[in-house]
Amino acid sequence: MTDRTDPHERAEPPPSPAVPAGGAPDGGEIAEAAGSAAPGQSSTSLWRDVWVQFREHKGAVIGLAFLIFITLFVIAGPWIWQVDPADLDIRNKDVRPIYTWLWDREADVMWSRPLGTDNLGRDILANLMQGGRVSMAVGWVAMLLALILGTLIGVLAGYFRALDGLLMRFTDLMLALPLLPLLLVMMLLFRDQLRAAFGPEQGIFVLIVTAIGITSWMHTARIVRGDILALKEREYVLAARSIGTPSRRMITRHLLPNVLSPIMVSATLGLATAIITESALSFLGLGFPSDYPTWGKILFDSVERMERFPERVIWPGLCISLTVLAVNYIGDGLRDALDPRIRGR
């Protein structure tokens, strides 16, 4: 796997998806290459080959398993663990997690509160589930938004020569902006307006998702543009054009399917960054309101008391870190699986 940096692809985040110089080949070539490498399989489809190669990457499989687990944990968890995360049980505040009992028999533990409660008596397990729902939702939606924006701008810049210069200058400009300070400023600026428009929770959700989305589409746009530029020179595009395919059909039918793999790889990176950015904003105190938990918010609220209750920072921190780690490993595996130079070797 090569992470290449050339002056045209600078300011790339480290797990940069290496784009094959010739762009993604079309489906026929892939099926041929993989078919010759795996004789005996009568019918191979592209996605089946990708899946076979993906399974080779141990880290990616574990990552996928963990991502499925944590998704189920946050979605299905509240149906099984039916404790209201916002329920204030002030008599049972500051309960330690159940495992503390193993080394400290004096500790205040309860079987009904397996991970303990916080300083207001709210159940930590239920809060982790509820917070996870928000964190994951923010991550997915922000990533999708960035992906749609990036793909749109990349395709327009790559396909229409007239737009190329303008759009790419704009992308360069966005890349030169100091993003974290601007995100902080945006959070502060539009907080009240959006709260008034959508209600306190939805307003902040819309704000965070939009802010992250419009500050993280640039890498996708560059990668997509590069691939489209390469694909445009292929014979099959010429053939399609010669039978009079209109631009819209050309993009949706012939170009987009072939840039799907770099888009998918940058999707995993986008998901990881979006989750981290949301929790960083919450950690700096500029995220969701305090009665609305997310993993970053729970971590931030617990920092003051981490000397006496370290578990309250460790659990949400572990949730964020492991989820991001899993997503990054999936991205790694996906990149290998979608790269025809590696697949079937």
């Binding site: 797990p15 981290i276 950690f283 970053g296 971590l299 920072v313 964020i320 870190s321 991001v324 780690l325």
Partner: peptide, 8 residues
């Protein structure tokens, strides 16, 4: 190193 956020 780059998955775990610096605040954690």
């Amino acid at each position: 190193g780059f998955s775990v956020p610096t605040f954690f």
